[in-house]
Amino acid sequence: MELVWATEDLVIAGQPYPGFPMLLWDSMESCVQVNQFFRHYLLRGAIGSERSWPSTGRALYDFFSFLQAHEIDWCEVDRGEAKGLVAAYRDYCLVTCNLAISTTRQRLTYICKFYEFALKEGWVNRLPFAYEEHSLRRESGFLAHIHARGGKVMANDVMPRSHKTLPKFLSMAEIKLLLNAVENPHHGMMMRLALHTGLRREEIASFPRAYVFDPVKTGRTERNLRIRLDPFDGSGMLTKGSKPRDIYVSRQFMAELYRYVTKVRGERASLNEAPQKALFLNQSGKPYGDDGKSINRIISETGKRAGIKVHTHMLRHSYATHTLVSLQRNPESGLEPLVFVQRQLGHSSIQTTMVYLHLINEMADEAVLAYDDDLNELAEAV
C-alpha cells in the first residue's frame, strides 16, 4: 500500500478546523497512530497558527514515505543498528536531498514529538534517539540577565547543529532599484506597504480598504498614524495566530495610500460587481489568496528585472533593520527601538526581534537616515 498525504475538515466541540492534516494508505485506511498524534499535538495549540499545520503533516508524510521505501516499520526502534531510524532520515534529508539545515531541523522536530507521544501511549518501548546536555553559550546584551537556564540545555542527539544565519535585507540602494523596476502601480504600492510597515505577505494580501483614510479630511496631524489590525473587526484582516495589534504608518504614506484608493484601485475594483474588502486586487478584480504566495511571485519577478534576489519576507527584514537603526540613531524620539519594532512586526517574543540587533551590529557603519523619509523621497523620484 502507498502512503497518501491528505487533509480533512474537522468540527470538534463546535469549532471548525478546515484543512486538518491526515495520513492515509491508498486504500483510504487511516494511519491511526499518526492521526491521533496530529489531534493531540495540533489541537492543544502546540503550533499557534493553523496555517502552519500542513508543514507538520508533510514532515511526517515524508518520513513515513522514507521508511516505506526502505521497508522499515516505524515502531522498530530496537533494530540494533548503529544509526537509528530518525538519524538515517536526517542524513537522507541533508545528503541525498540536500535540504537546508533549518528545513531538516523543522522536520525532525515534528518527528521527535511524534515518537515522544508514541512512547507515552506505549506504541514503542523507547525513543529512537537520546537527549544529551549541551552548554548554552550565553551572549551578553539586552535581557541577557533574565535567562534562567543555568547555562545548560537538553538537546536530542539527532538534530543537526544549527548555524545562525542572519536575515537578509535590502540596502537603500537596492530598494531604489527594486521600486524603479516596478511596471505596475498596484504592485508598487504593495511593495511600499511592506517596506513602510513590515507586514507579512498574508497581511498585505488581506489588508483592508477600510483601514485607509484621508488624513487631511479627518484632521489628523500626527506624523505617524496608528492603525489597529484586528482579525475580528469584520474587515477581513488576517494576522498570524489571529492576534490583533497596532501598527504605525506615516501621515505622508497614508495620504499616498488614500490617493491610490481614489485614483488607481478603481481600475481593478470595477472588474468585479461585488465590492471587495481587500485593498489590493488582482487583475481579475479579486483579492489575492490568503497566503499571499502570488504576491511573493510578483515581488520576486520585479526583483529579477532589477537584478536583485528578493522575496516578500526580505522586505519585512528591510523594514525592521532600517527602522531599528534609524531609531537608535535618533534617541530623542523617546521610543524603545527594540520594543517598537517587536510590536510593529507582531513578534510574540522580543527574542525573535533581537536577531535584528545582531544584524545591525554586523553592518558597516553607514549613514542610515530616517527610513520612512528616505522611502518617501524615493517614491517621489520614481
Rank of each mutant, 00 (worst) to 15 (best):
R39P: 02
Y61P: 00
S52T: 15
Y61N: 03
T56D: 04
I47N: 05
G45S: 10
L43K: 08
Q36W: 09
W25D: 08
F38G: 03
F20W: 04
F38K: 11
Y17C: 00
M22Q: 15
P21T: 05
W25I: 02
E50A: 15
R44I: 11
L43I: 10
P16D: 09
Y41M: 08
Y17I: 02
E50S: 13
G19T: 07
Q33D: 14
F64E: 04
M28Q: 14
R44P: 04
D62M: 04
A59N: 06
Y61H: 10
W53F: 15
P21R: 09
F38D: 05
D62R: 14
R39C: 05
S49L: 13
F20G: 00
Y61M: 06
V34Q: 14
R51D: 09
E50Y: 08
G48D: 04
L42Y: 09
F64R: 01
L43C: 09
A46Y: 04
S27M: 02
G19F: 06
P18W: 03
Q33T: 10
W53S: 04
S55A: 15
S49R: 12
G45T: 13
S55Q: 13
R58A: 05
H40D: 14
D62I: 02
E29V: 15
L60K: 06
Y61V: 01
R39A: 09
F38V: 09
Y17H: 15
S49M: 08
S55L: 12
F37S: 05
P54G: 10
P54N: 12
S55G: 03
Y61I: 01
R44K: 14
L42G: 07
P21I: 07
P54K: 13
Q15I: 15
Q36A: 14
N35I: 08
Y17Q: 04
P54D: 12
S30L: 12
A13L: 12
F63E: 04
V34C: 11
G48W: 04
L42D: 01
R44E: 10
P16A: 15
H40N: 12
Y41S: 02
G57W: 03
L23N: 07
D26R: 11
D62K: 10
G19Q: 06
T56E: 04
C31S: 10
T56N: 06
V34K: 10
P18C: 02
G48F: 01
W25H: 13
G45E: 09
R51F: 07
D26L: 03
F63S: 02
R51P: 00
G45K: 11
Y61D: 01
M22C: 07
S27W: 03
Q36I: 03
E29C: 07
W25Y: 14
S49V: 08
P16Y: 07
L23R: 08
M28G: 05
R44N: 11
T56Y: 06
V32L: 13
Q33C: 08
